[in-house]
Design a protein around this nucleic acid. Structure first.
Length: 422
RNA sequence: UUGGGUGUAGCUCAGUUGGCUAGAGCACCAGAUUGUGGCUCUGGGGGCCGUGGGUUCGAGUCCCAUCAUCCACCCCA
């Protein structure tokens, strides 16, 4: 236990962290191009924030939160998602009082107590973006376009964009009742889960994977057909904004999203071939959330991407162009008597921005060469008796095997030049 | 919660119907080359065979339990 990471967590070792840095840099860069700025929020928050912000009836709040009491008895929760914290920060700092919309992105670990499987962990990572203060359907379009641009820059072309509108509290409420009334006569044919939840959460029955449930409610009234005038118009405009850009999407009546705060636009991105958890990202509009969390009546929209799943997809494509690990100069000291001098040279090289390394395990010359080779050294610098006495060093180009001597005071220039022309 | 698979060296895995001191490849270290890499050869270090019980003269192998892990279900990123 002592030597094992907790269930659902894992280490990212250097050979993998380089891949994370790669996709993270692409996401940041893309978000910045779209005018989003980074916000960093705490990894834990007051439990009430998520209860209120995410919704008591959601799976996340009802069974997946990492909640604990701190030493003063406050109930805190490791964040299961990022939107609630952004909303809290927006209100706390009155960020809405300035220029609107406020456009933020964030990145980091999230925590949900769930059963791990391919692409799902208890500590997982999300990149998210949020835009507050505009209900313009083109902003819905922008948010989706940002998500798709990130996928494009990662070389991911095979995906499905699912789209739906979950309306506003008014039309969704009316529709909800209608759906319950429709399902009621068939309730005996539903799976146990759905029988239990169709009253409280009838929308959930729609995307139940159980085939029996599907058949039992076939021909059910759809939300899209029951949107109020405003919501319908908004949805049409969002679809128009996407179509205008040639973005293909699938209208999905069953897409209701797991979080309570969504209004109007809801979307999800699926990538096939990365396991059963194919949703790499999802989001939507949440026009009542800011007010519900104690702020002004301010609309919002955002999305989150699952980095583990994205990485699975990128690796499956095998198109990550990562530079091989390389060291510019390996300083080989022929005798421990010259180690101090070797350190001096090492420090001078590094000070000039040259990636330099040396041996710290008393290896003999031959072993140092092997070591230098394995870490990808382009040049090896020899420091032995002759060099020290005559005040020069020997440089060996590991690729061409050429070897030459340079005066110590000419070292930086010689190394730089050699690295450049090689 | 539920179902199935898998736990043997740092990694990937062999290990026969229970029967010698538990193996291989890769990796690591050393030597062949006492100041010079990649290839090759030789040698070396490393294993509570997941854990605990049971059956047996004898268990890595069979039985039970437990833990871990993977995949799926649920749901989602």
């Amino acid at each position: 236990m002592l030597t094992k990471a907790p269930r659902g967590t894992y280490d990212i070792l250097p050979q993998d962290s380089i891949k994370w840095q790669y996709i993270e840099s692409i996401m940041k860069e893309t978000a910045e191009i779209f005018g989003y700025r980074e916000i960093r929020v705490p990894i834990f928050e007051h439990t009430e924030l998520f209860q209120r912000g995410v919704g008591e009836t959601t799976d996340i709040v009802s069974k997946e939160m990492y909640t604990f009491n701190d030493k003063s008895g406050r109930s805190l929760t490791l964040r299961p998602e990022g939107t609630a914290s952004c909303v809290r920060a927006l209100i706390e700092h009155s960020s809405y009082a300035g220029l609107l919309p406020v456009k933020w992105y964030y990145m980091g670990p999230m925590f949900r107590y769930d059963r791990p499987q391919t692409g799902r962990y208890r500590q997982f990572h999300q990149f998210g973006a949020e835009a507050f203060g505009s209900n313009n359907p083109y902003l819905d379009g922008e948010v989706i376009m940002l998500l798709l641009e990130i996928l494009a820059r990662l070389g991911l072309e095979e995906y499905e964009l699912h789209l739906n509108s979950v309306g506003c509290p008014q039309c969704r409420g009316r529709y909800r009742q209608k759906l319950i009334d429709y399902i009621q006569p068939y309730q005996d044919n539903l799976c146990p889960d759905c029988q239990a939840r169709y009253i409280n959460n009838p929308l959930r029955v729609l995307d139940c994977k159980n085939e029996a449930c599907h058949q039992a409610i076939e021909g059910y009234p759809t939300l899209a057909d029951h949107l109020c005038e405003n919501c319908l118009e908004h949805y049409e405009q969002v679809k128009g904004a996407l179509a205008q850009q040639g973005i293909l999407f699938i209208h999905d009546d069953g897409l209701v999203r797991g979080l309570d705060y969504y209004t109007n636009t809801a979307f999800e991105i699926h990538i096939p071939g990365i396991g059963a958890q194919s949703a790499v990202g999802g989001g939507g509009r949440y026009n009542g959330l800011v007010e519900q969390c104690g702020g002004p009546d301010l609309p919002g929209i955002g999305f989150a991407l699952g980095l583990e799943r994205l990485l699975l997809a990128v690796e499956k494509k095998g198109e990550m162009l990562l530079p091989p690990p390389e060291i510019d100069v390996f300083v080989a000291v022929m005798d421990s008597a010259y180690e101090a001098q070797g350190m001096k040279i090492l420090q001078a090289l590094r000070g000039a921005g040259i990636k330099a390394e040396k041996d710290y395990n008393q290896r003999k010359a031959r072993a140092q060469m092997k070591f230098a080779d394995k870490i990808g050294a382009r040049l090896v610098l020899f420091l032995g008796e002759e060099e020290v006495q005559k005040g020069f060093v020997t440089l060996r180009n590991m690729r061409s095997k050429e070897q030459f001597q340079v005066a110590e005071n000419d070292l930086l220039r010689a190394v730089s030049r050699t690295l450049l022309i090689d």
